[in-house]
Simulated assay, not measured.
Amino acid sequence: MFADRFAEIVQARVERPEAVAEAAARRVRATTRAGGSSRLVLVAADHPARGALRAGDRPLAMADRSDLLERLCAALARPGVDGVLGTPDIIEDLLLLGALEGKIVIGSMNRGGLAGTVFEIDDRFTAYDANAIASSGLDGGKMLLRIDPEDPATAPTMQACANAVSDLAGRRLMAMVEPFISHRVDGRVRNDLTPDAMTRAITVASGLGATSAYTWLKVPVVDEMERVMAASSLPALLLGGEVPEDPDAAFESWQKALALPTVKGIVAGRSLLYPSDDDVAGAVDTAVGLL
Rank of each mutant, 00 (worst) to 15 (best):
I133S: 04
A134C: 10
S135T: 14
S135P: 00
S135F: 10
S136T: 07
G137L: 07
L138E: 05
L138W: 04
L138P: 01
D139A: 04
D139Q: 04
D139C: 02
D139R: 01
G140T: 04
G140C: 06
G141R: 00
G141M: 03
K142S: 12
K142H: 12
K142T: 08
K142Q: 12
M143I: 05
L144I: 14
L144D: 00
L144H: 09
L145Q: 02
L145K: 02
R146Y: 11
I147C: 13
I147P: 07
I147R: 01
D148C: 13
D148F: 04
D148Y: 08
P149H: 08
P149S: 09
P149F: 10
E150L: 15
P152F: 11
A153H: 14
A153S: 14
T154M: 07
T154W: 02
T154K: 05
A155I: 11
P156R: 09
P156V: 09
M158A: 15
M158I: 13
Q159F: 15
Q159Y: 15
Q159N: 15
Q159E: 15
A160M: 11
A160D: 10
A160C: 02
C161T: 12
C161Q: 01
C161L: 04
A162E: 07
A162T: 07
A162G: 12
N163K: 14
N163H: 14
N163P: 00
A164K: 04
A164M: 12
V165D: 02
V165R: 02
V165P: 01
S166R: 08
D167W: 06
L168R: 00
L168W: 01
A169D: 11
A169C: 12
G170N: 14
G170K: 13
R171D: 08
R171K: 15
R172W: 05
R172G: 12
L173C: 05
L173N: 01
M174V: 15
M174D: 08
A175F: 06
A175I: 03
A175E: 02
A175T: 04
M176C: 13
V177W: 01
E178T: 07
E178D: 12
P179S: 05
P179V: 03
P179E: 06
F180R: 05
F180D: 10
F180H: 14
H183M: 00
H183R: 14
R184I: 01
R184D: 01
V185W: 04
V185I: 14
D186V: 07
G187Y: 05
R188Q: 10
R188M: 02
V189Y: 08
V189Q: 03
R190H: 13
R190N: 06
R190V: 15
N191Q: 14
N191I: 06
D192V: 09
L193Y: 13
L193T: 09
T194G: 13
T194K: 03
T194V: 01
P195Q: 03
P195T: 03
P195H: 10
D196W: 09
D196Y: 10
A197I: 06
A197M: 08
M198C: 09
M198I: 10
M198Q: 13
M198V: 08
T199C: 09
R200G: 10
A201E: 08
A201H: 05
I202Q: 04
T203E: 15
V204C: 09
S206N: 10
S206P: 04
S206E: 11
S206G: 12
G207M: 07
G207V: 07
L208E: 03
G209W: 03
A210F: 14
A210P: 03
T211R: 04
T211Y: 08
S212C: 00
S212V: 04
A213Q: 14
A213H: 13
A213Y: 09
